[in-house]
Design a protein around this nucleic acid. Structure first.
Lengths: 284, 284
DNA sequence: GTATGTGAAAAAGTTCACAGCC
DNA sequence: GGCTGTGAACTTTTTCACATAC
């Protein structure tokens, strides 16, 4: 049990105008010039799923879960576990096993029937699909409390995401090393981002500054942004934004506290009603 | 445009065995304990949908968005805006207007056709639904980099979430005030949580400690947890867990970077195919 | 004329359940 | 006997489109 939902941040991307086109194999022109299928990318016809196309077909929700499976699997690998069944892995990841198997099926068939999955193989395949075989340099903008904490992670979660630059506007901070990296002025974003090939920008500024910082990052060529500022960022379609929003998280919890209280109240009422029905008057 | 998805954390709750039962209005007997109608906002009076029952019916996904609308609306209210259309509000919140209207419809009908919504009314209603009319005391466990940052928010995002207690295991930290609140030892969780009526626990410990801390919080009666540790927490069905997972967020961004690169490559390949179709043999 | 509120349709995501393979 | 991989059924969420009300 312990059903789990997961999913995070916001996605602000290419929003395909034609809905559903996402999962469908490239439509293209109907006229398939049969034989002429060139070696390069034989989309239709030939099976050959090609990691490329497969990546396209992975539901957004499954991607988030793959990252979790990866973490669980890495832990298992360290403990020397070699093989695991979908049931076990699902339990460890807090999802049900059918979902887990379906998620894994999006990336290919790497299990062995009657046996389970090889942990190392799975780790490798998920890393490949998530693009973790490549390093993604990160910059953090806004070196306040949170920015500090982020910078000090020194090499973002699980490595593969080295922090390559820090930015702020505070003159007192410029040049000061935080987590080993000197802070640059936000005006230098274009130059530094280009020089250090930053591909992911993390925004940890106060809300009023977030949109402008975002615009600068985008202008500098950053296409992926993780936003901690409680602001809805407006970005071009080709930029991906995910957000981490404390206030929203707290308020969702608040909603559930309230709902729970209401249910309790309701249940009490129901109990009372039933008592009445049963002829019993005292409640509880 | 700029379609947005949103949703965060994980939900590990009551998982109703009967699917779909969630959305159904409480069966109950008509007999509603009349008097209990909260004075503040006499909703519809006539059929009395009862905020209680309605809250049950709000899709999880909509709740997260309501929190965002609330923030946008609060900003507008401060700017002196009195009325707003679904189209405008949707744009500001980064969703499409149909979705926004549907989301708002879950909480009631507070708009005026041909006009739009009264900002203050909407703020009030969303706050009510999210349970923000009540204060929810928060405790933070794990006063490291992140815990510090969280404690220093001093009164969590948008107030209504006062930080009432801090916990750690480090003897050097015990008694030291952070953000004005002295740190207690995790062994004191039961006592302090009860005394200060903490209803939300925030876990910012290193991964290995997270599950145990979680168990202690749950044992102390905390039913809502916000987890920053990169660990899948196992909790009873009646406890709500949401998580904020840096590594997962980064990896999802990584996936999109990779996908984007693949698409670019594919597009190049497709161009070549088309050349073939056109009778042109040379690619590129 | 304008904009909400909402049924009905479409899409996305989840779960079931079992054939297929070890 | 046991476990994966997946089509099909089902649930949830999103989008459409328009009657309804101002």
């Amino acid at each position: 049990m312990a059903g789990q939902r997961d999913e995070g941040g916001e996605v602000v991307t290419s929003t395909p105008t034609a809905p559903g086109a996402d999962r469908v194999a490239a439509p293209r022109v109907a006229a398939d010039d049969a034989g002429s299928a060139s070696s390069g990318a034989p989309a239709d016809q030939a099976p050959e799923p090609t990691a490329r196309e497969r990546a396209r077909a992975i539901p957004e929700a499954a991607v988030a879960r793959l990252a979790i499976y990866l973490r669980v699997l890495s832990g298992l690998a360290e403990q020397g576990v070699n093989t695991i069944s979908s049931e076990e892995l699902a339990a460890a990841a807090g999802v049900n096993s059918a979902k887990l198997r379906k998620d894994l099926s999006y990336i290919g068939s790497y299990g062995t029937r009657g046996v389970g999955y090889d942990v190392d193989v799975l780790v490798g395949q998920i890393e490949r699909i998530l693009g973790l075989t490549r390093k993604h340099s990160v910059c953090v903008v806004g070196i306040g409390n949170l920015g500090h904490a982020l910078a000090n992670y020194g090499g973002f979660p699980g490595r593969g995401f080295p922090v390559a630059a820090l930015f702020d506007v505070d003159p007192d901070l410029i040049g000061v090393p935080v987590g080993g990296i000197p802070v640059d002025h936000v005006d230098d974003i274009p130059r530094v981002v280009a020089e250090r090939e930053v591909s992911i920008g993390v925004i940890a500024t106060p809300p009023p500054a977030a949109q402008e910082v975002c615009d600068r990052l985008v202008a500098a060529g950053v296409q992926c942004i993780l936003n901690f500022a409680p602001v809805v960022l407006q970005v071009p379609d080709d930029v991906e934004v995910r957000k981490v929003d404390l206030a929203v998280e707290m308020q969702i919890l608040s909603f559930h506290v309230a709902r729970r209280a209401d249910e309790a109240a309701e249940a009490a009422g129901e109990g009372a009603d039933l008592s009445d029905v049963d002829g019993v008057v005292m409640r509880r």
